[in-house]
Design a protein around this nucleic acid. Structure first.
Lengths: 239, 239
DNA sequence: AAGTGGTCTAGACCACCTG
DNA sequence: AGGTGGTCTAGACCACTTC
C-alpha cells in the first residue's frame, strides 16, 4: 500500500537473509531512491523504520550500518500478545479459559482508572500453558460499552484477532507497569507454587485509536519463566 | 537548533501545563505550520515526536487528540540511567562504589558476546541507595579499548554524564533483557535479603553510534522495590 | 463539500566523514 | 572536494471525518 512501508519490508527481508551483511553499509539514500523509483524523503521513511526496529544504525556523513539481527531478533516490546509471542517462537502452547463472564468492574479498578463503580465489563481469566505447564495467568477486563461479549473460541485462540479482526477495533497504545508481587492463593494453585512465592505481574491499560480506554490486563508470570527483551534507543536527554 | 524539535518542546510544554486540555484537539497541522512559520512536513515531525512519547493520539480526518499526561508521566523506558531516573522523581539517593578496577572480562561475557577471553575492561560495582536502603546493585563492565578508566567521582555521580560529556561517547542503543534470578550471597549481604530470595536482573548490552559494543551491565534490583513503566504503541502486525 | 491527517515529490541547503 | 545523511520547503494528491 505505502511505498515507504514496502521498501522497509524489502530491506528488512534482505537484512534478515544477510543479503546485506552485518556491519556493511546499505546503499546510500540517493541510490536507494533511484533503485526504488521514489523520492529521497520516502526512502528516509523506510530507513527510519529500520532504525526504530534495530535493523540499522545511521551515521551522518557515513551511511546506514547493518546491525546483527541475531542479537535483536525477539523484541517482546510493543503491544505483543501471548499468541503472537508464542507463534514467533514456535513453542507448543495451550490456553485454558477459566472464566468468561460479564460483571461489574472490581473496585480497585474503578478507583485507579477513575471509572464509575457500576461500570460493566467482560471479565476473562485464562491459563497459558507451555509444554503442559501453566506459566502465565492472564486476567482481562474488557469494558462492556466497547466489547459486549467474547466468544469462548476467541478467548482460547487469540483475543486480539477477534477484537481487531471481527470487531474492527483499532487498538492503539498502552501503559504497562512491570512489578513483582506475592503470589495469591489462586496463583499458587494454578501454577503449583510453594508458600511465600512471588510472581511477575505486567499490568496494562490499553486504549483505542479514539483514546477510549477499553481493556485492563494483568499478566501474572511464573518468576522462573519470565523474560522480557527490549531494543531501546538512547533518548535525547533533552526530551 | 532544529525547528521541528523546538516546536515539539513548545507543544509538549503547553500540554504539560494543560494549555491544551486533555481530550481536546491540537490546532490543525496547517494552522500550526502557519503559527510557527514552517512547512507542514516540519510540523508533522514535531507531532510525530509527541505521538511517540505519548502526548497525543492522531486520527486521520479528525486531528491530534491531547492525551492525559498524568497517566503517562514517568516512562522509565529508553536508556535511562539511575541518575536521570532518580532526578526525575526527586528522591534522596546515594551511590556507593564497591569496586572500580581494570581486569579481564569474565568468561561468561566472552562467550555470550563473542569476545576474546583476554579482553580488558573497567569493572564497576555500585550500590544504589534510596532513603538509606540498598535497592539496586549495578555491575558495569566497560570495554577498555573505549573507556580507559573511570574516575571515582564519575562513578559516584553519573557515569553517563562522564561517558557522554567528558569522553564524548555517543551512546546509541541497547539490548535489554529482564529476568528474575536467585539472589547471590553478595546480593543477600548487600541488600539484606533472606535465604532463597530472588532479584530482578536487567541485563543490558550497550552500543555506540558506530555500532561498537562498549558496555555490559547487570542491574540487580530488590524485588519489592522494582517497577518498570512503559508507554507502548501497537506495532503494525505486519512488522 | 470542506477540513483533517497520510503520503509523496523534487529540490534546496547544511553538517559530517573520508579521500 | 565529493559523498553521505539531516533538515526544510512548497506543493500535490489521497483517505478519512464531519457537516
Amino acid at each position: 500500500m505505502n511505498k515507504f512501508y514496502d521498501i522497509y519490508l524489502d530491506l528488512k527481508c534482505k537484512i534478515e537473509k544477510y543479503e546485506y551483511t552485518t556491519g556493511s553499509l546499505l546503499p546510500s539514500e540517493k541510490l536507494l531512491s533511484e533503485k526504488y523509483g521514489v523520492s529521497r524523503e520516502t526512502t528516509r521513511k523506510a530507513l527510519a523504520l529500520l532504525l526504530e526496529n534495530g535493523y540499522i544504525q545511521k551515521k551522518q556523513g557515513k551511511g546506514s550500518i547493518v546491525l546483527d539481527i541475531q542479537r535483536f531478533n525477539f523484541p517482546v516490546s510493543g503491544l505483543t500478545s501471548f499468541k503472537e509471542l508464542q507463534q514467533s517462537q514456535n513453542i507448543e502452547n495451550e490456553t485454558i479459559v477459566l472464566k468468561n463472564k460479564r460483571e461489574k468492574i472490581p473496585e480497585f479498578l474503578a478507583e485507579t482508572l477513575n471509572l464509575p463503580t457500576n461500570t460493566e465489563a467482560v471479565s476473562l481469566v485464562r491459563l497459558r500453558k507451555i509444554s503442559g505447564e501453566v506459566i502465565i495467568i492472564d486476567k482481562d477486563i474488557l469494558l462492556a460499552n466497547i466489547v459486549d461479549a467474547v466468544p469462548s473460541e476467541a478467548a482460547e485462540d487469540s483475543l486480539y484477532d477477534y477484537l481487531e479482526g471481527t470487531l474492527g477495533l483499532n487498538i492503539s497504545y498502552a501503559k504497562k507497569v512491570f512489578v513483582v508481587e506475592s503470589a495469591t492463593p489462586e496463583d499458587r494453585a494454578m501454577m503449583h507454587l510453594p508458600e511465600d512465592s512471588y510472581v511477575v505481574v505486567v499490568k496494562s491499560e490499553v486504549y483505542l485509536e479514539d483514546t477510549r480506554l477499553f481493556q485492563y490486563t494483568e499478566s501474572r508470570h511464573r518468576l522462573d519463566r519470565f523474560k522480557f527483551v527490549e531494543f531501546a534507543r538512547r533518548k535525547n536527554s533533552l526530551i
